[in-house]
Design a binder for these strands. Structure first.
Lengths: 338, 338
DNA sequence: AATAAAAATACAATCGATTGTATTTTTGAA
DNA sequence: TTCAAAAATACAATCGATTGTATTTTTATT
């Protein structure tokens, strides 16, 4: 029942069986007889043997582990993606190392290095907001290392991306407000180095176009979309002429803006209708409940990790650039009801 | 600029310098001359050398990595604790592997095994709700492996725990409701195999006692405290005679209960006042905003990891049982205002 | 009983870095 | 210039598991 780092050699000595046979037995190889296996299993249990994965990984040059880097694990969207990844990984017999970049490019670089020096078999990454240069990733990608971007795509070079159709989502959200009768719709936008925010904005302008409303850059407020940014944006918005709708590129900013506007006697949705983005759990609970875009988060995790495992199994895929686009859906709640 | 798994031996060959010297140079040992170091650094950069941590860890038997197991990374409390842990770890030069048990004892066991077989130097764990038996941890603990429990303590055997004073928190929350004039206070309680829920309940009963109100087991509703459980509890609560206050052992259940009661025309806090537990971000945003107990989450992460690093450095500490108790604070919001 | 084929087991090298010891080179004092 | 001490470098074993090859044992066939 003891445990202090028992090795296959301890089992080997205890039984007078070569360590190679012990190793094979523990891996259930059919080169070892049933009888011997049983002896070895018993002795292993008795000594409290536990495989040293480091040695195993070193020798085989496979870690059966993938790394996942997200900006922040506490964000509902990312933790749902991770849930999807973990489900697929579990079935494939892989371990998952979860890391958060906290939106810092420095941390992100360090995490990539750490994961690689621990010889993970592949990496799934949603890049930080600060990331606009991909040197720290490109190099590995070019060497055929299995690396997949999700949610925040990287189209600089040949890469595999799993994203949602942000243009369509932006279009649907804005069109919904237009259908409702909004004429002056403000867009809370995020950092434009992230393609995803470019796309949501593109969806917004496309919709305006489609409905014959002229686009004005004055109605776009670009921030980091944090809680404080939402309040600031709401403040600005009150100085704009007769705004009657807001499409926010995330829920966080939309919610804090709504909270602020309510203190200023602005009626939501009567005076200003809101649509957010991400379907954070809180958006269903606040008052008024927030219309928003639901992203297939869990599915995204499954799709991205499935692709990654294919690349790991069959390295040639790693070279092939492919982009999977998942479909978002608009959820209409009180913040934009007629 | 290539990278395909360059080793110290490649550098060694390229320069005609022994690999042991290369290794020492890369670790900045003073047994290597400045001139040689420079040559080695340059060649390493040129070849795109990256240390193989697996080999290093195997040889040194130290991984400079700790494991953290929490029930769920998406819970605000846990992600804040993790932030505290990561800050301390970063300063100490340690990597952190984050894992979630999803409240499943099976997953928890598997995670512990995986972490150990990857030879982490220590583990910080907040046990799952299902965990009532500690065999999978006790064994290692007894062998002097650095292992610290946080938030959800384990007092079965000699262990190090970092917890908050749940009895005091429960007392303060309940006393606050009593001061407000509540006479029939219901307690939403959690699984009693977790000491933390026992303690919150104890605080509740202590407060009733202190204020001369008789305790009745009928007023305690024990669930898993998930969203659905809150709704169910609220339903039950309506069948109880003149309930005028609720102390919920977490925010999630309190919030869903409030949402449900509002649909039944119950006025919060006029008819029933609420105090939750954990100070989830959402609790400040819902209406009415929820009074709750703020736990020093970030600090808990720092304290727990600091203790762990002490144990890792100085193994003898690992044997010493100590419990750190952090102080919670009551945050009064609209759900319990006069 | 003899022997070829098949099964089981043993031998030995290897993965990449580290580290105690041995050897060579350099330095500086006599 | 000589030589001991110090500095720099090389040698070789090691961490624990895996795996190709060699050897031994068992099985089955004639």
């Amino acid at each position: 029942m003891k445990n202090n780092n028992v090795t296959i050699h301890d089992i080997s000595k205890a039984l007078g069986i070569d360590s190679s046979t012990v190793s094979r037995a523990l891996n259930n190889s059919d080169r070892v007889s049933k009888k011997t296996k049983e002896k070895i299993f018993n002795k292993a249990a008795e000594l409290g043997y536990q495989r040293n994965s480091l040695a195993s990984k070193l020798r085989t040059n496979r870690s059966n582990t993938i790394g996942v880097i997200v900006p922040r694990i506490s964000r509902h969207f990312f933790s749902s993606v991770i849930a999807g990844i973990e489900e697929t990984a579990f079935k494939a017999g892989f371990d998952v190392i979860i890391c958060q970049s906290l939106e810092s490019i420095e941390r992100e670089k360090k995490l990539v290095e750490t994961l690689l020096s621990n010889r993970v078999d592949g990496i799934l990454i949603s890049i930080s907001m600060e990331t606009s240069n991909y040197d720290h990733l490109d190099n590995y990608k070019k060497n055929g290392f299995p690396l997949i971007f999700f949610d925040r795509p990287c189209n600089v070079s040949e890469n595999t991306n799993v994203i949602i159709d942000d243009v369509k989502a932006g279009f649907d959200a804005t069109a919904h407000l237009l259908e409702r009768g909004c004429k002056n719709i403000v867009h809370f936008s995020g950092p434009q180095n992230l393609e995803l925010y470019q796309n949501r904005k593109k969806g917004y302008t496309n919709a305006l176009n489609a409905y014959g409303i002229p686009f004005s850059e004055d109605l776009v407020i670009e921030t980091q979309l944090m809680q404080q940014d939402g309040i600031e944006a709401a403040r600005q918005l009150l100085n704009l002429p007769k705004v009657d709708g807001v499409f926010s590129a995330n829920d966080t900013a939309a919610i804090s803006a709504i909270q602020y506007l309510k203190t200023k006697q602005v009626k939501i949705p009567k005076d200003i209708a809101f649509v957010g983005f991400s379907n954070e759990p809180i958006s269903a609970i606040i008052e008024p409940s927030l219309s928003t875009i639901n992203q297939p988060d869990f599915e995204m995790g499954k799709v991205a990790s499935t692709l990654l495992f294919e690349q790991i199994k069959n390295k040639k895929y790693a070279a092939e650039n492919q982009t999977k686009i998942l479909k978002p859906t608009l959820i209409i709640r009180d913040s934009s009801k007629f």
